[in-house]
Write a protein that binds this DNA or RNA. Sequence first.
DNA 1: TCATTAAATTGTT
DNA 2: AACAATTTAATGA
Length: 224
Amino acid sequence: MKDKATLVRNTQWGQALSEEALARALAGTSERLVPAGSYVCLKGDPADHWIGVIDGLVKIASHWVTGKTVTFTGVPPGGWLGEGSMLKHEPRRYDVIALRESRIAYMNRSTFQWLLDNSIPFNRFLLHHLNERLGQFIGMVEHERLLDTDARIARCLAGLFNPVLYPGTNRQLQISQEELGYLAGVSRQRANQALKALEEAGLLRVEYGGITVLEVEGLRSYGN
DNA sequence: TCATTAAATTGTT
DNA sequence: AACAATTTAATGA
């Protein structure tokens, strides 16, 4: 994906906006290039923006004082995040970190509010978005303690391919096994081992610097 | 356009 | 965790 205009235009709500409204939405959205390993936003920051991923890959995580980090989920291009703190008018409750160099769109609060007040499709989108996110986290809590690493990786990938949350993601995903390990909370070696098992099962193809998903449903239900 | 070199990613111990 | 092998990207002729 190239820029914020492409990102917004490709969303469900963006397509329903008039040219005038689209221009207004874009005017209230800035764009920043975040280097790999840098923060997109920090826990405790005032939530003044809704964040969209134009290109790259970010993870939503929490940093513990002991130095441990817990990753909640990854967000590929086409995904949006941060609406929760935005709606509740409270500080960010997590860190967002770029796993590799990423182009990020920041929509300011007034524009977000304006869309909320004026666009039914935007509201519908947010509703679906929140509902999917909720389902995703319920599933994670349910399975985290029950599944082995192979299945965790499988679910992690299936999560990245969720067509509602991340409509821009096609069957190919550019993610190194190291990054995948970060997302699933396992070592690179173990991620590699899991990927081999999943490839063996015919669910995906491992390529240099990325993977191609063959059976999203198979990934989602792997290990059940 | 092709060849060489550097960087990134993966496989193995 | 460290090293070797492989693939891609970058550079210059």
